[in-house]
Design a binder for these strands. Structure first.
Lengths: 143, 143
DNA sequence: CCAATTCATTGGGTGTCCCAACGATAAGCC
DNA sequence: GGCTTATCGTTGGGACACCCAATGAATTGG
């Protein structure tokens, strides 16, 4: 029985942080080939998935600060991957949509991101990968 | 069969990142009661575990940038929790050690950090917690 | 003895996250 | 109708984590 914090590195929060950092790095390097940063890619993917959506909604779904969302969408819009249209039903909102070019970039990023995730999970068997995903999903949705 | 990136939020790297972010927040809030930041606590714990150790060693073990290590140790030393002693065997190195006061703070932090981790893993059964730890450890050590 | 490396430190830069404010708009309540 | 309250996008400032590069001192290797 080891003392509680004699091995800080074996704390779940620490382990999860290290694994997440590695995953972040792998995905970031992968999609950098398409000229996108991590969060730009995430916002682009979420925009594609949730159709025309307000910025605040995107921020809540991805846990992105509204302040940062402005910069991310500015970049995506300037790159022609995304469109900000005033929402006629609520003139405070911007209805964000993906352009055909944005969809094409996203399609190419999908393969890259998936490959990066495969590399991240490579040390595990397929069964173990499924187990890990199930456990992480529980932790992510439960609280 | 869902398309690869139709659900970015179900990518392992994304899930791990969200879970890790929550764990980081829980632990940070917990040890804030002792006046320590996350990385200050990590460095203090690693210093206690690995005895007199050089700053570069600490940085490698915790994946902390040498630049940041300087600031963290400055703070810990100023708080009287840690000592930097010139290493007689290698005068380039600082032999970092924990003061009795540092050990006391660390002891109190252990309980706080453990409670935070218990809260993080609360949605899982003890068996599942063990499984998760084993899988994360594999991912952390394998590559 | 000389080249290559390591150590602590400093510098600059980017990205993520938190708190606060603003004008414009919308929603709820009396 | 009017009033308060809340939300939306945006801007601002600041803390912290991560990355790259460079310095002088000191150690190591051939």
């Amino acid at each position: 029985m080891t003392s509680p914090l004699q091995h800080l590195q074996s704390l779940p929060s620490w382990l999860a942080g290290r694994v997440a950092a590695r995953g972040r790095g792998l995905v970031a390097d992968a999609i950098a080939a398409e000229g996108l940063k991590l969060m730009q890619h995430a916002v682009l993917a979420a925009t594609a998935e949730y159709g025309p959506v307000a910025q605040a909604d995107l921020g809540r779904r991805l846990s992105v600060d509204p302040k940062d969302m402005v910069g991310i969408l500015n970049h995506l819009q300037q790159a022609g991957l995304v469109l900000r249209t005033p929402d006629p039903a609520d003139r405070r909102k911007n209805a964000v949509t993906v352009t055909p070019e944005g969809a094409a970039v996203l399609r190419r990023c999908a393969a890259l991101a998936e490959a990066a995730n495969n590399e991240l999970l490579a040390p595990l068997t397929p069964d173990e990968q499924t187990q890990l995903m199930a456990l992480l999903t529980r932790l992510h949705e439960a609280p």
